[in-house]
Design a protein around this nucleic acid. Sequence first.
DNA 1: TATTGTTATACTCTATAACTATA
DNA 2: TATAGTTATAGAGTATAACAATA
Lengths: 153, 153
Amino acid sequence: MSTLLDTCAHGLMETTPKIMQSIRMEMRLGHGSDLSIPQFRTLRFIQRSPDSSLSDLADHLGLTLPSVSKLVDGLVKQAFVSRQESSTDRRRLTLVLTKTGETIINSARASALAHLARTLGSLSNEDLKTIHQALELLNPLFISHGRQKLAKV
Amino acid sequence: MSTLLDTCAHGLMETTPKIMQSIRMEMRLGHGSDLSIPQFRTLRFIQRSPDSSLSDLADHLGLTLPSVSKLVDGLVKQAFVSRQESSTDRRRLTLVLTKTGETIINSARASALAHLARTLGSLSNEDLKTIHQALELLNPLFISHGRQKLAKV
DNA sequence: TATTGTTATACTCTATAACTATA
DNA sequence: TATAGTTATAGAGTATAACAATA
């Protein structure tokens, strides 16, 4: 009967996709070169965790290695990222942001944040405090669970 | 300088994709037949708004007609949905859930909700109240803006 | 002419399976 | 043998452009 719990679950299922769609749209329209959400997250991850390997990225995104390999393919093709050899382990590679990649991610991020801020702009400070608290509560509950490996059917 | 606003925008950008990924994963693993998020939303929309047209659905999802046509193709192929002719306007079609579709959407929904409830399960009632309030605030701000029509480059 | 929907084409996202190279 | 990554293949998601049928 836990009604409040159910209500929150419903709310998340209704609202989360709408927020994602808004972010996605801004990512396409908001600035020159359009990034998908995974591409954006990839650039952000490399920016924040330099010298990561493909496996590190796969763990962060919760995707399989082939998926991430292809994802990076696209970013390399656009010259946002380069693959460098690891010196210690010749199987591994090191992901590096190019100058262009750095520019793109900063601009996309700024544009997305500005758009979100505009969207939240009508709220009072108290409302914002509530949202902030809620995000602080939710964030640790939804952790990336490493690479996907789906059960066989 | 509006720091709280920025903090909320950052929080949304960090947390929203993680929640989506969790929902998406449950949608694939949680029950027999796996649905993508758009498929899930489509079935839900038809369930709640019977006799809708493809354009109605496109508006609801914020996608273009060709995208939605293809999306529905997949659901028809799986026999979750059927396309029926509209009696009043022979250009329009009417989307109808099949018996199977009804079963699938109910099961997927229950499973996703249960998973979310489990994830939120460790929170106190007060925390849940905060989240509930936040969702009530956020939900109306992120409305579907009708079909996409991207600017020409 | 405007609207509803489909088809053609072309990306990205994502997975599994099979492979190569290194440890 | 186990791990890092790629390639092959396949289906879904998404768009634009071009089209058919109806209003």
